[in-house]
Lab assay of single mutants.
Amino acid sequence: SEIVVAMYDFQATEAHDLRLERGQEYIILEKNDLHWWRARDKYGSEGYIPSNYVTGKK
């Protein structure tokens, strides 16, 4: 599975969105859409994140 790191904070506005915290790692579950990826955080929460807010883990 692909691990990404959040470059920016993202506040979830929709129920299906996942909040991003800058510097935290997330697991990508689905990339069915170019701009919104389904991800899981370290607490096990899942939701959609803006793909341009994250970068591949170095």
Results as ranks from 00 to 15, higher is better:
37 W>P: 02
20 L>M: 10
42 K>V: 09
38 R>C: 13
11 Q>L: 13
9 D>P: 05
31 K>V: 05
22 R>K: 15
6 A>G: 03
28 I>S: 00
57 K>M: 12
5 V>Q: 05
14 E>Q: 13
18 L>Y: 00
11 Q>I: 14
12 A>S: 12
1 S>D: 13
54 V>G: 00
29 L>C: 05
29 L>M: 06
37 W>E: 01
52 N>W: 15
39 A>G: 05
32 N>W: 09
53 Y>S: 08
53 Y>I: 06
48 Y>M: 13
23 G>M: 05
38 R>T: 06
2 E>Q: 11
2 E>R: 09
16 H>V: 08
22 R>H: 08
20 L>F: 02
52 N>E: 12
3 I>K: 08
39 A>T: 01
23 G>T: 04
23 G>H: 06
56 G>E: 14
16 H>M: 10
14 E>D: 15
4 V>E: 00
52 N>A: 14
45 S>F: 12
27 I>Q: 10
52 N>H: 14
28 I>A: 00
8 Y>P: 00
10 F>A: 03
12 A>G: 15
32 N>Q: 11
8 Y>N: 07
32 N>S: 14
23 G>R: 03
15 A>Y: 08
18 L>C: 06
55 T>R: 11
37 W>M: 04
19 R>Y: 07
36 W>Q: 07
6 A>W: 02
49 I>N: 01
47 G>K: 00
52 N>R: 12
9 D>V: 03
51 S>H: 07
57 K>V: 14
3 I>C: 09
49 I>E: 00
20 L>S: 01
27 I>V: 12
46 E>W: 03
48 Y>H: 05
51 S>D: 03
31 K>R: 10
39 A>E: 01
7 M>D: 06
21 E>C: 11
21 E>V: 13
41 D>V: 01
46 E>R: 01
23 G>L: 05
47 G>P: 00
14 E>W: 09
13 T>D: 09
3 I>H: 07
57 K>Q: 11
35 H>W: 12
53 Y>M: 12
43 Y>T: 08
36 W>N: 06
10 F>I: 05
56 G>M: 13
47 G>S: 01
45 S>K: 15
46 E>L: 04
46 E>I: 09
54 V>D: 02
22 R>I: 12
3 I>V: 12
52 N>I: 10
42 K>W: 05
15 A>E: 13
37 W>D: 02
39 A>V: 12
47 G>F: 04
2 E>N: 11
12 A>C: 10
24 Q>M: 11
4 V>T: 03
28 I>E: 02
18 L>V: 03
50 P>F: 05
18 L>F: 05
18 L>M: 06
35 H>A: 08
7 M>G: 03
6 A>N: 03
27 I>S: 06
1 S>Q: 14
38 R>G: 03
31 K>I: 05
26 Y>H: 01
13 T>F: 10
48 Y>I: 08
44 G>A: 03
57 K>D: 10
26 Y>A: 00
1 S>H: 15
19 R>G: 12
36 W>A: 04
37 W>Y: 07
16 H>Q: 12
55 T>P: 03
57 K>P: 10
27 I>P: 00
51 S>G: 06
21 E>W: 07
26 Y>G: 00
36 W>V: 05
9 D>S: 09
54 V>Q: 01
20 L>Q: 01
11 Q>C: 14
23 G>K: 02
23 G>N: 05
14 E>V: 09
31 K>E: 03
26 Y>M: 01
56 G>V: 14
5 V>Y: 09
55 T>E: 12
16 H>F: 11
16 H>W: 14
24 Q>Y: 07
34 L>D: 14
18 L>P: 02
16 H>L: 08
34 L>Y: 10
7 M>L: 15
49 I>M: 03
27 I>K: 06
25 E>Y: 10
29 L>F: 05
31 K>L: 04
6 A>Q: 01
33 D>E: 08
3 I>G: 04
30 E>P: 00
7 M>E: 07
52 N>G: 12
4 V>R: 04
37 W>A: 02
8 Y>C: 15
1 S>P: 14
46 E>Y: 04
12 A>K: 09
39 A>M: 02
24 Q>W: 06
49 I>H: 01
22 R>E: 10
29 L>A: 00
58 K>A: 13
40 R>C: 06
24 Q>R: 06
18 L>K: 00
54 V>A: 01
34 L>H: 11
1 S>N: 13
15 A>Q: 11
49 I>R: 00
33 D>T: 10
17 D>T: 15
43 Y>M: 09
15 A>H: 11
17 D>G: 14
43 Y>F: 11
20 L>A: 00
34 L>I: 12
50 P>A: 03
18 L>A: 00
21 E>N: 07
32 N>V: 13
26 Y>L: 04
50 P>N: 07
28 I>G: 00
8 Y>H: 10
17 D>H: 15
24 Q>S: 09
28 I>P: 00
28 I>D: 01
4 V>C: 10
32 N>T: 14
8 Y>M: 12
3 I>F: 08
12 A>L: 05
45 S>V: 13
8 Y>A: 09
55 T>G: 06
56 G>F: 13
9 D>E: 06
49 I>L: 07
8 Y>F: 13
28 I>N: 00
32 N>C: 15
32 N>K: 13
41 D>K: 01
12 A>D: 06
53 Y>F: 13
48 Y>W: 13
28 I>T: 01
51 S>P: 08
49 I>S: 02
42 K>M: 12
39 A>Y: 02
41 D>H: 01
57 K>T: 12
46 E>N: 03
11 Q>R: 09
31 K>G: 04
48 Y>Q: 07
34 L>F: 09
7 M>F: 05
17 D>I: 15
10 F>S: 04
19 R>A: 14
44 G>T: 02
46 E>D: 05
55 T>C: 14
53 Y>P: 02
36 W>E: 05
8 Y>V: 09
35 H>F: 13
27 I>L: 12
37 W>I: 04
16 H>A: 10
24 Q>N: 09
33 D>C: 14
25 E>S: 10
23 G>Q: 04
8 Y>S: 07
47 G>N: 02
50 P>Q: 04
52 N>K: 11
13 T>P: 10
27 I>A: 08
44 G>V: 02
38 R>E: 03
11 Q>H: 13
6 A>F: 03
10 F>Y: 14
7 M>H: 05
58 K>S: 14
